[in-house]
Deep mutational scan, measured.
Amino acid sequence: QWKVGDKCSAIWSEDGCIYPATIASIDFKRETCVVVYTGYGNREEQNLSDLLSPICE
């Protein structure tokens, strides 16, 4: 189960590419979260089910 502060990978809606991110907040009722893309600072809402394991850098 994901928690705030977890590192993950998420698909950015603008280009469909996968980027490393950190979970900033979680809404368990809606099963969504807000991620912050590492190195970019962009925030975006994602479905918890769409999150991927962190990418090894």
Rank of each mutant, 00 (worst) to 15 (best):
R43K: 10
Y37G: 00
E57A: 15
G16Q: 03
T22K: 05
Y37N: 00
G5M: 03
S25I: 10
R30F: 09
R30C: 01
I18L: 12
I26W: 04
P20I: 12
E44S: 06
Y40V: 07
K3I: 13
D27I: 10
K7H: 10
P20E: 12
E31D: 10
S25V: 10
N42Q: 10
C56M: 14
E14C: 11
Y40S: 15
G41Q: 06
C8K: 00
V34R: 03
K7Q: 12
K7V: 11
R30N: 12
E44I: 05
S53K: 11
V35N: 01
D6W: 11
C33I: 08
L51V: 01
E45I: 11
S13L: 07
R43P: 05
I23H: 01
D27Y: 08
G41D: 03
V35C: 06
D50M: 08
Y19D: 03
S53E: 14
Y19A: 01
S49G: 09
I26C: 03
F28A: 11
C17R: 15
E45M: 09
C17M: 14
Q1P: 07
K3S: 09
P20D: 12
V36M: 07
T38L: 11
P20H: 11
D27F: 11
E31I: 09
Q1W: 11
Y40F: 14
E44K: 04
Q46C: 04
I55H: 08
E14L: 14
E57R: 08
C8N: 00
Y40G: 03
S25Y: 09
V35E: 00
V34Q: 01
S53F: 10
D27L: 10
F28R: 12
D15E: 02
Q1T: 08
Q1F: 11
R30G: 07
L51T: 02
V36K: 02
I55K: 04
N42D: 10
W2H: 13
D6G: 00
T38R: 07
E44L: 06
S49V: 11
C17G: 11
K7P: 10
P20A: 13
D50A: 11
Y40M: 15
E44P: 06
G39Y: 14
W2Y: 06
P20Q: 12
A21M: 06
E44M: 09
A24C: 07
W2S: 14
W12G: 00
Y40T: 15
V36C: 01
V36Q: 09
D27A: 03
R30P: 04
A10D: 02
N42R: 15
I55A: 10
I18S: 02
I55D: 13
E31V: 07
C17N: 15
V4P: 14
K29W: 11
I18G: 01
R30Q: 08
P20W: 12
Y37Q: 00
S49I: 11
Q46V: 11
N42H: 15
P20T: 09
V34S: 03
S13N: 04
C17L: 15
A10H: 02
W12D: 01
Q1K: 14
V34E: 07
E57D: 13
A10K: 05
